[in-house]
């Protein structure tokens, strides 16, 4: 009898472990903001590819540098050619985990805090990073928000305007609404 209960328990457990869901989007949003008091430097990318697994919290955000659109074309050209060198390094990526995914109830609408931890690759330089954000569940569909502080010099991004017209540290905000 005991054995049967135990078996049932493990069967239930393994079912629980396997019933994970992969959420994804190909049109997520990332905002790059390196504004200084002298100049507004903001680019928005609406073609972010992202996947997230509800059980493990594994998450990936992939973005093409050329998908960042700036209000000023000249700024966009400089961003691509002089700073991010997007012809050589066309992609940026975050791969990691939402470490407190266990506290998120995907079945219940609401806002839950989310802590990101993983590797951020920009300009072909990878750094371990962590960031704070939020998961919003609405009608069973999650939206992930996160804000990453990116020290440009730490990713080998240099240029005479950095520290002047362009901030030393950019804020990269992610907003991915999964379908």
């Amino acid at each position: 009898m005991k054995k049967a209960t135990l078996l049932l328990f493990f069967a239930g457990l393994s079912f629980g472990l396997h019933a994970q869901k992969i959420f994804s989007t190909k049109t997520g949003q990332i905002k790059f903001n390196a504004s200084s008091p002298l100049e507004q430097v903001v680019g928005i990318n609406n073609q972010v590819d992202s996947k997230m697994i509800d059980k493990t919290g594994q998450v990936v955000f992939s973005a093409l540098i050329k998908s960042f659109k700036f209000e000023n074309q000249l700024m966009e050209d400089h961003f691509n050619e002089n700073y991010l060198e997007s012809s050589k390094f066309p992609k940026a990526e975050f791969k990691g985990f939402i470490t407190n995914i266990g506290t998120v109830n995907f079945a219940k609408d609401g806002k839950y805090p989310a802590n990101f931890s993983g590797t951020l690759t920009i300009h072909n330089v990878s750094q371990k990073v962590s960031a704070a954000g939020e998961i919003t569940i609405a009608n069973g569909a999650p939206t992930v928000n996160g804000a990453f502080k990116v020290k440009l010099a730490g990713y080998g991004i240099t240029g005479s305007y950095i520290g002047g017209k362009i901030a030393n540290e950019a804020e990269v905000t992610v907003n991915c609404k999964y379908q």
């Binding site: 190909k26 590819d49 093409l64 066309p90």
Partner: peptide, 13 residues
Amino acid sequence: GICAGFLTDVVLN
């Protein structure tokens, strides 16, 4: 469109 590169799909904007 303008080709931005390749993720899961080839991306144009």
